[in-house]
Design a protein around this nucleic acid. Structure first.
Length: 741
DNA sequence: AATCCGTCTATTTTT
DNA sequence: TAGACGGATT
């Protein structure tokens, strides 16, 4: 026991050994959050206060769930089987599979990923003759997802405008269609599971008494429905152990509700609140900067990180003339760091939006520096994989219209738009699925649709006795997918991926299926049965796995490469050296955040997350000009730079030839941008304005700004000025009292 | 059925 | 700027 708790600091120890009561752990960045969570679980089991069977631990990502399992496994001699550790969606899926009848789902129900979901929304809208231009499917989809995340079915939804009224109608039809096809989108997993527990008292009390400990990771990221789900799961003898950091809440845009932390405290009368403030990651100046920055936020539970590691290096600030120069600076510094013996994989270049990666990649590539870009297409999202999965889905559940449409004519088998349309008409007329229409209409006839129906039928028969891997192998061959991609000129990689899918299926049977599906069933004589099912249908399980865990996005995990990613995806990671790039008003903080409620505070939290990724060295860079949407934009430095303590910063921009302002290294003049002369000259000639684009100006009301663009001439002339935190303004030159600054 | 071309759009993302 | 998408063309 001692060894388990040995290396914990007093706060961590307090959290780990809390009594069997609800608790909220405010875990600052780098404060050993995962360690506390996993040690808590190990401690509970070791002290015999609960069996693995009585624990459920919820995370947001599969990665976090895996990490937790690995670490628990390392701490405990016993098997972690029987313990429910997973994502909200994964755990709900498990419950729904186990109780599919009560949840009114077929045992083989399929999970729609966002791609599938959007396709279904479009299909429903088309059937309803809803104008896609007036009601963009994406917006309708997020309306539906948003409603579900609030726990609302169509009958509970309030509409407020034209779009929401129409979206509401689509929602109703969409839900009906999902039910007909036996498919569930991501939000549906949670909502359906919530309803299952809410409406089925025996089931609810069964799980409530089973799970004596509910542990939640990243609690600040939970949405309303997830919180309600947790509340349902917690019975009178359940203790919820929630770990989170309100300062790292950066997912409000997808429904995360930090307010859940306050609500939790109130709803559960939480008395045990532990703050983990000792940071084991970053040096002093970095933490000073992080603390000072986040101190500008009003809405906080309050926390101050400290370290015993010493002050360390100053943060290096660099102002570039253009995004290209900024990238070059980053590359030079990376080269220098490599020369000093640091691993590239221990350096990260962060940016606010993905579009910024291009210039950086270009610079890295031309210098021959290996790099890896996070994000992008994941394995199970690839076209060829989705196609193969669609065949598999049809074998498991032919009513799946999405899967049907995806492959009915792929590879092409002479089923054109008109035959598909007549199928859709028939299906609609009978209120049935496409499969139903196809089988009843064409029956055993010699039409191409009939041939497709037979193909699927044959596949189902042929794979009935096969292993999962053999099934996949059979399907990718017999469907003609492999042959099709062999013929295609750039198909080699796709064929490889299909082969990789077979491997994934083989691996799945070995590990995941057992871990996920046949976890120890501690005999529950309960009438209810337990969510530890006998490995029901391996194919459905594999398909669920494919939807819930979309796989890695890139190969080359092991390579020593510089890591490029958005600040969002850097959350939870740490690096020796971190570059935060594009620190400009309008970009970071992003311009669309100023109109959102609490948008700026969320941007600031994002910056806080970015800063706290760095262990020893942190670069903050921005550029005077940036190519955005095909246009050069002039920008001023991000206000976040002003919010950092000067004592922690070291200005590293070399004095530029054109820049002769005195004392610029010391005073705040650098926060106004000076564009390269060549841009200014060209535009000034053309527009004939007294002011140049890129020029710094002073306005009596708005203060200092930079001219971003101009239009018109003479008395009509107007200029657009970026006043930094005052925002972007169009001013008529004739009236605006502008002076050169 | 495949390819081409014009139009549109552009924050962040996991499941 | 560049990628995605939809419609039209070959």
């Amino acid at each position: 026991m001692a060894s388990l708790l040995d290396a914990l600091n007093p706060e961590q120890l307090a959290a780990v050994t809390l009594p069997h009561q609800h608790a909220l752990v405010l875990a600052g960045a780098g404060s050993g959050k995962t360690r506390v969570l996993t040690t808590r679980i190990a401690w509970l089991i070791r002290t015999g206060s609960v069996s693995p069977h009585g624990i459920i631990a919820v995370t947001f990502t599969n990665k976090a769930a895996r990490e937790m399992l690995t670490r628990i496994g390392a701490m405990l001699p016993i098997s972690t089987r029987g313990m429910w550790v997973g994502t909200f969606h994964g755990l709900c899926n498990r419950l729904l599979r186990a109780h599919h009848r009560e949840a009114k789902l077929p045992s083989t129900f399929q999970i729609l990923d966002s791609q599938d979901q959007l396709a279904l929304v479009k299909r429903v809208m088309k059937a309803m003759h809803v104008d896609e231009d007036r009601y963009p499917p994406r917006q309708v989809m997020s309306f539906i997802a948003g409603a579900k995340e609030e726990g609302r079915r169509p009958r509970d939804v309030e509409t407020y405008d034209e779009l929401s009224r129409r979206a509401h109608e689509v929602y109703a039809a969409y839900d009906e269609q999902c039910q007909k096809e036996g498919v569930a989108d991501f939000a549906e997993l949670l909502l359906r599971c919530h309803e299952l527990l809410a409406h089925n008292e025996p089931l609810r009390s069964h799980y409530q008494s089973r799970f004596r400990h509910v542990l939640v990771d990243e609690f600040q990221d939970t949405n309303r429905l997830q919180y309600r789900w947790l509340k349902l799961l917690a019975g009178p003898d359940t203790a919820i152990f929630a770990v989170g950091d309100d300062d790292q809440s950066i997912y409000a845009f997808r429904g995360a509700n930090v307010g859940n932390m306050e609500d939790f405290r109130r709803d559960f009368h939480v008395e045990n609140i532990v703050r983990l403030e000792q940071n084991y990651r970053s040096h002093g100046h970095i933490l000073d900067a992080a603390n000072a920055l986040i101190g500008h936020n009003r809405k906080r539970l309050g926390k101050n990180l400290w370290t015993s590691a010493g002050e360390g290096e100053l943060l290096r600030v660099y102002e570039a003339q253009s995004d290209g120069y900024e990238a070059n600076f980053v590359v030079e510094e990376i080269n220098a760091l490599v020369r000093d013996g640091f691993a590239r994989r221990d350096m990260a270049v962060l940016y606010r939006s993905n579009a910024q990666s291009r210039v950086l990649e270009h610079a890295l590539f031309s210098q021959g520096i290996p790099y890896r870009v996070y994000g992008g297409l994941r394995f199970f999202e690839r076209q060829e994989i989705k196609h193969a999965l669609a065949y598999l889905r049809l074998i498991a559940n032919p009513e799946d219209d999405g899967a049907f449409l995806r492959v009915v004519n792929f590879p092409t088998r002479g089923i054109g738009a008109r035959s598909i349309e007549s199928l859709q008409d028939a299906a609609r007329a009978h209120g049935a699925t496409l499969w139903h229409a196809a089988t009843t209409l064409t029956g055993k006839s010699a039409t191409s649709v009939g041939a497709f129906v037979r193909l699927i039928g044959e596949m189902r028969v042929a794979t009935a006795g096969l292993s999962l891997a053999e099934t996949v192998e059979h399907v990718i061959e017999k469907s003609g997918l492999v042959a099709h991609y062999r013929k295609e000129k750039d198909g080699a990689e796709r064929v490889e991926n299909l082969q990789e899918l077979v491997n994934a299926a083989a691996a799945f049977t070995a590990d995941d299926a057992n871990a996920a599906l046949s976890a120890a069933t501690v005999a529950s004589a309960a009438t209810v049965g337990d969510g530890d099912p006998a490995p029901a249908d391996p194919l459905s399980a594999f398909l669920a796995h494919a939807a819930l865990e979309s796989g890695d996005n890139q190969a080359g995990e092991g390579a020593d490469a510089v890591q490029l990613m958005t600040v969002h995806s850097a959350k939870g990671l740490e690096f020796h050296a971190v570059f935060i790039t594009g620190l400009e008003e309008g970009l970071f903080p992003h311009e669309s955040s100023v109109t959102e409620d609490d948008g700026l505070e969320e941007e600031r939290r994002l910056m806080y997350v970015a800063i706290t990724r760095a262990r020893t060295r942190l670069y903050l860079t921005f550029s005077q000009t940036r190519m955005l949407h095909g246009q050069t934009r002039y920008a001023v430095a991000s206000r976040f730079l002003d919010e950092l303590p000067k004592e922690a910063l070291r200005w590293v921009t070399p004095r530029l030839a054109y820049d002769v302002r005195p004392g610029r290294l010391d005073d705040r003049a650098w926060s106004a941008a000076q564009p390269p002369a060549r841009y200014a000259a060209r535009v000034a000639d053309k527009a004939g304005l007294p002011f140049r684009i890129g020029q710094n100006v002073m306005h009596p009301k708005f203060g200092q700004g930079v001219i971003v663009s101009a239009e018109g001439s003479g008395p009509e002339a107007r200029v657009q000025i970026n006043f930094g935190r005052q925002g972007m303004k169009w001013l008529q030159l004739e009236y605006a009292k502008l002076t050169a600054a």
